[in-house]
Design a protein around this nucleic acid. Sequence first.
DNA 1: CCGTATCCGTAAGGATACTG
DNA 2: CAGTATCCTTACGGATACGG
Lengths: 144, 144
Amino acid sequence: MSQENNEVTVGQASQACGPAGEPCAPGQAKACTVREVLDRVGGKWSIGILVAASQGPVRFTELERRVEGISRRMLTLTLRNLERDGLLHRTVHPTVPPRVEYTATPIALELHGALVALTDWAERHRSAIADARATYDRARGAAD
Amino acid sequence: MSQENNEVTVGQASQACGPAGEPCAPGQAKACTVREVLDRVGGKWSIGILVAASQGPVRFTELERRVEGISRRMLTLTLRNLERDGLLHRTVHPTVPPRVEYTATPIALELHGALVALTDWAERHRSAIADARATYDRARGAAD
DNA sequence: CCGTATCCGTAAGGATACTG
DNA sequence: CAGTATCCTTACGGATACGG
């Protein structure tokens, strides 16, 4: 396969922000920047992989087991994107049974740190959100 | 339209986590929780709307202008989901020209706080990531 | 063991037209 | 002004089979 057409590069939905500039409407700059991150690691599996790799080098098959639910295809795809963005480092050991290890880069480790803020938020308001949802759904569902 | 079939509720791709529990593999609990958040506000427009609404009550048309690029359809859809999750409050003023205002709830304001950690991360590593991308693409693009 | 290629379903999102 | 409804395109992601 050539590189002329890469079907699904997993996370490249960004189009409002330039590659390294901020052509966003004033007041939207922050939202725009956050979107950049989400377009990168907002995929279904990126975070799971990042978390696993943040605890030390992991092998392909190990990730397949640890992330659990991920398909080979998505694992490879997400891995490539993470590597491409410099969040993971890929080391190939040319042994008889191939051995590939993925390691989180310092950048990825910092991201992991930033994610705990999100986790914390989710933990705190998890029930409140579920409650709001239930209330909303009941109101709209029963009223008709 | 009844509510029997809601075509696209914008963000409900989560399936690995229970509604309020954590049936995740050990070591993945954190990733799972973060996914919950992203499944909620990971949409293309959620953050932009949230940021705009976090600075005070906004009207529908004003959002349409401020978010810029969003379609009427997606604005409505995202608004509904945000309201459903208790992140926005919708106030209808029964005036002659209808006037609807959206206000960020305290929960949303807290999220906004958590997002700055992400923004900060993105700002710091923006160029490094772009660089990594370019390097990766050149290596794979030229070698073939 | 570590991937790739192909096929296919679903769902997010855009364009456009119409309405209370 | 503040939405809805309908159509359509694309991107995400799953299943499966094959290859170094």
